[in-house]
Design a protein around this nucleic acid. Structure first.
Lengths: 177, 177
DNA sequence: CGCGGATATTTCGTACGCTAAATATTCACC
DNA sequence: GGTGAATATTTAGCGTACGAAATATCCGCG
């Protein structure tokens, strides 16, 4: 992680909610990692293996979409998985720009050995909510997400304008002694 | 990020909530990065600069706690910031193991030039909720977080043992093979 | 005093993750 | 039927992130 919180000293309601969100997110990554380690995989690799097991071969771009990462990132992940003999690359016959990623039998065996998707734990917790809470949560989260999108589009979208400061491109430092 | 979702084809309520959470989290990172870029900083660096501006000098360990990262990670971040003349390292006099991180005037100027903490945007969105929603959200998120902690402690905590099925507390999932 | 255990930070090695630029192909259109 | 815009993937460079091991100190205790 990194950018998020800054563990607040005095907590407002907002801070608490933020903290819960951050906790859940980081925890989901930790859990993925933990589960993955048992199979000598990394978090992203476990995700890929489980995904391919479920939906079959995918092109690298499709894979990137699914796991929400850039192509260049996935290239690296697949490189390492290929090196480990978990997947193979196969150039598409119809469109030779495309590469299909396929699980090897070793990769498939490994996927089978890992019982649940990491996210299941997370889901399990959400499912402990009753119907009413579930509805409320969904409605509220959706509202917040939408609101963030608005603010982002307005405030951050095309930045600058008055942002006078910021830019000390090269001013160079020479303050201290 | 990476481990999380796997963009679901059919979305249950749970999936939607998950997606909202993931969206909010990744968006908060994206925003931090975006704001940071205007000052020629990275996300974590902006976080550090803003933090030091507000609370003053911190030891490296204190800093790690605050931004929820490992010491070794923060060492790297501070290395680069020191190189850029944004902060200085000062060995503590009382305990020579400790290093105090201090903003330089350049770092301070930069911090001053950036108007809001990135998290403010996020908070702004949460604040658009009415009192009732806020209470609900806090209660629900806290409950979910607590539940995840339970499951984690039981299923993932100390690995192996009989954890064959990573079984969720509630019988739950057993749908797909 | 001197030793062993605890604590603070750094170093090392590996894996993401992103952007920008390079490559390789495909496709549309003249 | 060739050329330039689009698309798919890879390469290159930088900055996190983490765990484990190395370093340097500090501290309590005999």
């Amino acid at each position: 992680m990194t950018p998020p919180p800054v563990s607040p000293e005095l907590k407002t309601e907002v801070d608490q909610v933020l903290e819960a969100i951050i906790y859940l997110y980081t925890e989901s990554r930790r859990i993925t990692k933990e589960l993955a380690k048992r199979a000598d995989l990394t978090g992203p690799q476990l995700t890929v293996v489980k995904l391919l097991e479920q939906v079959g071969d995918l092109s690298l771009s499709e894979l990137s979409d699914k796991i929400r990462a850039q192509n260049s990132t996935v290239t690296g992940i697949i490189d390492r998985m290929e090196r480990e003999g978990l997947v193979t690359r196969e150039r598409s016959k119809e469109d030779r720009r495309v590469v299909h990623i396929r699980l090897t039998s070793k990769g498939r065996a490994l996927a089978g050995a890992i019982p649940v998707e990491p996210m299941e734990i997370f889901k399990g917790a959400l499912e402990s909510l009753n119907a009413q809470e579930m509805r409320d949560l969904m409605r509220i989260m959706t509202k917040v997400a939408k609101r963030v999108k608005q603010i982002v589009r307005r405030d951050v979208g095309e930045g600058d304008s008055g942002t006078s400061g910021t830019s000390q491109g090269q001013g160079k430092e020479k303050e201290e002694k």
